[in-house]
Computed example of a mutant assay.
Amino acid sequence: MIVDPWIWVGAFILLAYTVEAITGFGSLIIALSLGALLLPLSQLIPVMIALNVLMSGYMAWRNRRHIHWPTLLKLILPLMLAGTLAGYLMRPWLGDQLLKAAFGILVLWFSTRELWRMYHKHTVHPHPPMLSRVLTFGAGITHGLFASGGALLVYAMAGTPLNKSHLRATLLSTWFSLNTCLCVIFLLDGTLIPSLPRVVSFMPLLVIGALLGEFLHHRLNEHRFRVFLYSLLVISGTLLLGKALVDM
């Protein structure tokens, strides 16, 4: 490529954190699904995780009064931590192309499900407790594999009695906790230190994205914006899966 792919990744990070500020979700899955079209996930994940620790830590601190500690400490974190460790240990066995294909399938599942739900105005019903636990553990595995456990965890928490503020603050605390643990693992396996210069260079984009998203939050039709966003993810997931299958 004529243009350094990391320049494009910077643009994707700006888009991802602008979207996060507008809608309250999606920074990792957007940045990774677009960035993985250009670079291996193994290069992207340490950078994205470190950036997310900064953003989720700040947001979790701001919303700390709304954290529902019983749900966080007794349900989410034990299962997510176990699943994240299992997913991390599975990564070397899968290889980058299979990992990329699996991530493409996850992105497609998430985006098409959300489009279907919006189109049909689907009402969310609570899952049985055991199914919620299984899905939460599965979310941990996907987080350990490709740092994107949010889609499955939100699905696992469907119908939860927590109100919107409590759920958001609890999930932010989850990402901060899990991604801090992953940063420690990346430090130990030697992948974090080489990524730090890029993390530092991309940090201003978090601030710009947050400010831009805050500016746009009340000026965009959120429903139409979400349709556009999920459609973009459908295209991205399809391209990612197709590229991975061709390269295998």
Score class of each variant (00 low, 15 high):
residue 191 T to W: 09
residue 54 L to K: 07
residue 61 W to P: 07
residue 64 R to V: 10
residue 208 I to M: 13
residue 154 V to F: 05
residue 33 S to H: 07
residue 94 L to Q: 06
residue 5 P to G: 10
residue 147 A to V: 03
residue 134 V to I: 15
residue 43 Q to D: 14
residue 49 I to S: 01
residue 242 G to R: 15
residue 174 T to H: 03
residue 2 I to Q: 15
residue 178 L to K: 06
residue 21 A to D: 04
residue 26 G to Q: 05
residue 46 P to H: 04
residue 4 D to I: 11
residue 186 F to M: 11
residue 3 V to I: 15
residue 108 L to G: 10
residue 117 R to T: 10
residue 69 W to I: 11
residue 181 C to D: 09
residue 224 R to P: 06
residue 51 L to W: 01
residue 200 V to Y: 11
residue 33 S to M: 05
residue 46 P to W: 00
residue 16 A to W: 00
residue 184 V to F: 13
residue 239 L to I: 05
residue 157 M to K: 00
residue 164 K to G: 04
residue 166 H to L: 08
residue 232 L to F: 11
residue 7 I to L: 15
residue 176 F to I: 06
residue 79 L to N: 05
residue 107 V to W: 02
residue 71 T to P: 06
residue 73 L to P: 01
residue 184 V to H: 12
residue 113 R to W: 13
residue 178 L to H: 07
residue 177 S to F: 10
residue 132 S to Q: 15
residue 108 L to V: 09
residue 118 M to H: 07
residue 93 W to F: 13
residue 26 G to C: 07
residue 107 V to K: 09
residue 204 P to T: 03
residue 84 T to G: 04
residue 235 I to S: 12
residue 202 F to D: 01
residue 73 L to V: 06
residue 54 L to V: 15
residue 184 V to G: 13
residue 225 F to Y: 12
residue 103 F to K: 06
residue 230 Y to M: 10
residue 232 L to P: 04
residue 23 T to V: 15
residue 235 I to H: 08
residue 185 I to T: 14
residue 232 L to Q: 01
residue 212 L to Y: 02
residue 245 L to C: 10
residue 63 N to A: 13
residue 62 R to H: 12
residue 161 P to E: 02
residue 96 D to W: 04
residue 31 A to V: 12
residue 76 I to R: 02
residue 34 L to F: 14
residue 158 A to H: 09
residue 30 I to V: 14
residue 80 M to W: 00
residue 81 L to C: 12
residue 170 T to A: 02
residue 117 R to S: 13
residue 223 H to C: 01
residue 231 S to R: 04
residue 219 R to G: 05
residue 236 S to T: 01
residue 140 G to V: 08
residue 93 W to S: 14
residue 140 G to F: 02
residue 99 L to G: 01
residue 90 M to Y: 09
residue 104 G to Q: 06
residue 163 N to A: 00
residue 183 C to K: 08
residue 123 T to E: 05
residue 112 T to D: 10
residue 200 V to K: 12
residue 116 W to R: 15
residue 205 L to N: 00
residue 130 M to I: 13
residue 35 G to I: 02
residue 57 G to V: 06
residue 93 W to I: 08
residue 197 P to E: 01
residue 121 K to I: 07
residue 219 R to Q: 08
residue 239 L to F: 10
residue 3 V to M: 15
residue 61 W to Y: 12
residue 171 L to H: 04
residue 192 L to I: 09
residue 38 L to D: 08
residue 140 G to E: 00
residue 29 I to Q: 06
residue 147 A to F: 03
residue 6 W to S: 05
residue 198 R to Y: 12
residue 244 A to C: 09
residue 116 W to G: 11
residue 136 T to D: 01
residue 16 A to P: 03
residue 195 S to Q: 08
residue 116 W to M: 11
residue 231 S to I: 11
residue 109 W to Y: 14
residue 93 W to L: 15
residue 131 L to H: 03
residue 100 K to I: 01
residue 190 G to P: 06
residue 112 T to C: 14
residue 1 M to P: 14
residue 229 L to Y: 00
residue 14 L to V: 07
residue 17 Y to M: 09
residue 176 F to G: 02
residue 206 L to K: 04
residue 67 I to A: 03
residue 190 G to D: 10
residue 103 F to M: 14
residue 139 A to G: 14
residue 121 K to Y: 02
residue 65 R to H: 14
residue 203 M to N: 04
residue 178 L to E: 00
residue 242 G to I: 12
residue 110 F to Y: 13
residue 230 Y to I: 09
residue 150 G to D: 00
residue 29 I to S: 05
residue 62 R to E: 13
residue 167 L to R: 00
residue 146 F to Q: 04
residue 228 F to Q: 00
residue 162 L to A: 03
residue 150 G to A: 07
residue 235 I to E: 09
